[in-house]
């Protein structure tokens, strides 16, 4: 019966959403690209030449990438073991870890960044804990430092590292490890040659999620490090909201867009190469 229908009226249901997004979101993005590449009606890359020839802008790019890399590494370091624990956990332990991941995801970033402002102060919880453990001789302020920014940002983004890894790891058959052990493989060999290759697609997409979010975060650096430290996103926001320099803003916005899109595209190509179905 389906095959007899020439024009499928059900398929047309997709049109309103596609037209809507195309009009209020797709076209504006194309327009943004066009504006950054056309100056006074002539195609020109002058905006980008100017941007990339200013040493200050390279500091901004360096800040953006350095912070994003550190946030991604910290998220991976704590997110990977958490994903493993979540995949092994049952009952109450599993529920606790899931709540600890999903609840913060449902709370806005302004709330969390505000809380980290309190936590990272000189008399904040982190400083008190480090002094109590004897790691620090005296209380120090982490707020408005790069370390504080990395900690706060990793806190906001680590669920996006845990969940993709968990979604892959939970499907790995535990009997594979046992089979490798029966065949005489040492624990290290089993982890690096059997387990890790299977978990890799999840790790790759976790890294891509966290990195692209960390590159473009705006509220977190605003609250945790302040104006003196600029990233591509804060510079983009400032050029529109404070400096009214829209040429600069469009240029940095396009740089940011290209960065985020290439991370997403590269990661999906990578995980396909590693045999992931995601």
């Amino acid at each position: 019966m389906m095959a007899l229908r020439r024009i499928d009226p059900v398929g047309l249901l997709v049109l309103p959403a596609v037209l809507y997004l195309g009009l209020v979101y797709g076209l504006p993005l194309l327009n943004l690209l066009a504006r950054a590449l056309v100056i006074d009606g002539v195609p020109s890359v002058a905006g980008f030449v100017k941007f990339f020839s200013d040493p200050f802008d390279w500091i901004v790019i360096g800040n953006t990438l350095r912070i994003a890399v550190l946030v991604t590494l910290l998220s991976l370091a704590i997110g990977f073991p958490t994903a493993l624990a979540l995949a092994r956990a049952r009952g109450a332990a599993q529920a606790l870890i899931l709540v600890a991941i999903i609840l913060p995801l449902s709370v806005g970033v302004v709330v969390k960044a505000f809380a980290w402002q309190i936590v990272l102060r000189r008399d904040g919880v982190v400083s008190q804990a480090l002094v109590a453990l004897g790691l620090w001789d005296e209380p120090q302020r982490l707020l408005f430092t790069e370390a504080g920014l990395v900690i706060g940002a990793a806190n906001v983004f680590v669920p996006f590292m845990i969940l993709p890894i968990y979604s892959v790891v939970k499907l790995i058959d535990p009997r594979l490890g046992e089979a490798a052990a029966t065949l005489g493989a040492a624990p290290g060999y089993r982890f690096f040659r059997v387990f890790l290759p299977l978990a890799l697609p999840g790790i790759v997409s976790g890294i891509a999620f966290v990195f692209s979010m960390a590159v473009s975060m705006y509220v977190v650096p605003n609250l945790l490090i302040g104006d003196r430290f600029q990233t591509l996103a804060t510079l983009t926001g400032r050029s529109f909201l404070l400096m009214r320099n829209e040429q600069l803003g469009s240029t940095t916005a396009v740089v940011l867009l290209v960065l985020a899109v290439s991370v997403v595209v590269a990661s999906s190509a990578l995980s396909r190469r590693f045999g992931g179905q995601s």
Partner: peptide
């Protein structure tokens, strides 16, 4: 829209609207 930087999407919309 979930994957692109919100700030960039916002700016693009602002200019177009």
């Amino acid at each position: 829209p979930l994957m692109l930087p919100g700030l960039v999407v916002g700016i693009a919309m602002l200019e177009a609207y």
